[in-house]
Structures are given as C-alpha cells and as structure tokens.
Amino acid sequence: MPTLALVRMNGRLDTLAREAGMHPDLVARFIRLGLVDPAEPGAGAQLAQAARLRRDLGIGYSGAVLACQLLARIDELETRLRRYER
C-alpha cells in the first residue's frame, strides 16, 4: 500500500514538474519545504514562481518559499483592501 501511494505521488510530481517546467527533484524539494500542497490547483504556477525567484534573486530554497508565501499574502491583502476601498 505505501508503494502505491509513492507511485501515485511520483506521478503527480512528474505532472507538476512538467507544468512548472522544472525537474521533478526540484519540485520534490520545494514540496518538502512546504511551498505547496501538490494536490492543490495552481501548485505548478507557484512552483515556477519559486524557481524563478530563487534563480533570479540569488536566494536559497527556503528563502524562495518564504518570498512566495509573502507575495501570495500581499496579493490576498491587496484584493481585500480593494474591496474595502470600493
């Protein structure tokens, strides 16, 4: 049974890796750091963003995860703010 779960996970990793244009190992690494829930829709886009930030800003893996999460939080807050301002 655990084997099956692993295979299923790997299948998802490969899909995500393709979606994000990244190597599956890199995807796995970001997932281990808690960047995304692999089952979540939009996980591929977040992974790609983290990879871009890491590559372009010279930050580490966990730094990229933090930046991504903060950016998502800002997006969310800005959306809410706009609703209030209307």
Binding site: G58, I59, G60, Y61, S62, G63
Partner: peptide, 9 residues
C-alpha cells in the same frame, strides 16, 4: 543536503 546556495556564496 538542503543547503542554500546563498550560504555557500
């Protein structure tokens, strides 16, 4: 390991 490049930098 899970080292960050920035550390190495």
């Amino acid at each position: 390991g899970d080292g960050d490049f920035s550390d190495l930098f």
